[in-house]
Amino acid sequence: MTQPNSGDLLLRMLQLTRDAELDCETFLEHIAAYMDGTVESEELLGLMNHHRDLCAECAEEFAILERALSED
């Protein structure tokens, strides 16, 4: 593992921190609907977007899914 810039990473995470957040498991429960653009609740969609911005691991998972399902 290489040494990351922990300070900047932590500060960016603190900038994005909210009192109410989705955890990874809930994000992954809804990732298929998020991928298909069929999340019906605006509130849930906002929480999904926020979690994707905050959680690098779930963002990576979504990016791989997006690539895997791309039409090209």
Binding site: H30, A32, V39, E61, A68, L69
Partner: peptide, 17 residues
């Protein structure tokens, strides 16, 4: 499966995860 997406997307999500 929650039936709020295509089943194929759900299958792909299980595989990627």
């Amino acid at each position: 499966f929650r039936r709020d997406s295509r089943f194929s997307t759900w299958v792909a999500a299980v595989a990627v995860n």
